[in-house]
């Protein structure tokens, strides 16, 4: 069992998917090898191995990228489009929301759009207000789009393979600061079903629900809580849309307390939806109101102390759980 980074596992998933199915294509800015296989090398080696026609660097034109992905998928291919940073999806929103998400429904099921949009984001690298946002709620709020956000190499591989298999558009969110986090290497062909959470650690006092980098922060918090005699159950949601109600509700039914942690700002975030569903289903089983913990409601700041205070970290999660139990 080797050790692999999230970045490497994404690369490996792309290689395996392209190897397994000739219909899989990659497009995006700088993705081909003459352009270095991506600014961080996520797609390194792919154009050399599979050819320029299957791995194509594009102009800096996000509408054109997503539009081409949609069109080529209507022609029978399975494109993986890279939108370098999640904030850049904003200039392709028409293609994503009005077209990718809706063509299956509006065509009465005659056409479908089996595309994956890989995009990275996350605060912590001093990239400021336009390069680090978590916008998953925007997409989760749109009927017709699936959204996933892995927290470790094995899930990154398995979710990406499932996203490529999926007959509908999937937004695959990568976290920049944890690209080099190592973990267990996935087996080739491994799949993580979309919509299935994983229970990272079992516990009985409180359920902590997180995804993406917040899983790593929450894991540290849960560890610290354990040393204080608090037994917290940690759920890695992995898929945000659809999300695994069954696993979450079963856990909260057992613990009677829940907190949802995400890096996106709190108001109108995924945490609001999850909290609401828990209240609707388990009101009488709850020992305390469900809590939400997200980033400060402001653009991602630049200055180091501001950025450090912006998103939740292990200490903030530990403190919030402590408050929930008192």
């Amino acid at each position: 069992m080797g050790s692999i980074t999230i970045l490497e596992s994404i690369n490996r998933a792309l290689v395996d998917a392209m190897e397994a199915d000739e219909a899989v294509l990659i497009l995006g800015e700088d993705v081909a090898d003459p352009e270095d296989g991506g600014v961080l090398g996520v797609t390194k080696g792919l154009s050399t191995r599979f050819g320029d026609h299957r791995v194509r660097s594009t102009p800096i034109a996000e509408q054109a990228i997503v539009g081409a992905a949609i069109g080529v998928s209507l022609g029978g291919f399975k494109p993986v489009a890279e939108i370098m940073l999640m904030n850049f999806t904003t200039v392709a929103m028409d293609m994503i929301v009005n077209h990718a998400a809706k063509l299956r429904f509006m065509s009465g099921g005659q056409t479908n759009v089996p595309i994956v949009i890989r995009t990275m984001t996350g605060s912590g690298f001093a990239n400021g207000g336009q390069h680090s946002d978590y916008l998953e709620a925007w997409f989760a709020h749109t009927a017709g789009i699936k959204v996933v956000a892995p927290s470790n190499p094995s899930d990154a591989y398995g979710l990406l393979r499932s996203a490529i298999d999926d007959p509908d558009p999937v937004i695959f969110i990568e976290n920049l600061p944890t690209y080099f986090t190592k973990g267990e290497a996935p087996e080739s062909g491994h799949r993580v079903p979309i919509g299935k959470a994983s229970v990272v650690r079992e516990g009985s006092d409180v359920t902590v629900i997180a995804y993406a980098k917040m899983v790593q922060e929450a894991a540290a918090a849960v560890e610290a809580l354990a040393s204080r005699g608090i037994s917290a159950e940690l759920i890695d949601l992995r898929s945000i849309a659809p999300w695994d109600r069954e696993t979450v509700l079963a856990s909260v039914k057992k613990t009677g307390r829940a907190i949802v942690v995400h890096e996106a700002v709190t108001p109108f975030g995924a945490g609001a939806e999850i909290s609401s569903v828990i209240h609707e289903n388990l009101f009488h089983a709850l020992k305390a109101p469900v809590q939400r913990l997200g980033a400060a409601f402001c653009p991602v700041p630049f200055s180091r102390p501001l950025e450090s205070a912006f998103a939740p970290d292990a200490a903030a999660i530990e403190a919030a759980v402590g408050r929930l139990l008192t």
């Binding site: 054109a64 539009g67 069109g71």
Partner: peptide, 9 residues
């Protein structure tokens, strides 16, 4: 933009 993708296919 979508016509481009069909043409690409």
């Amino acid at each position: 933009p979508i016509a481009n993708g069909l043409a690409w296919s």
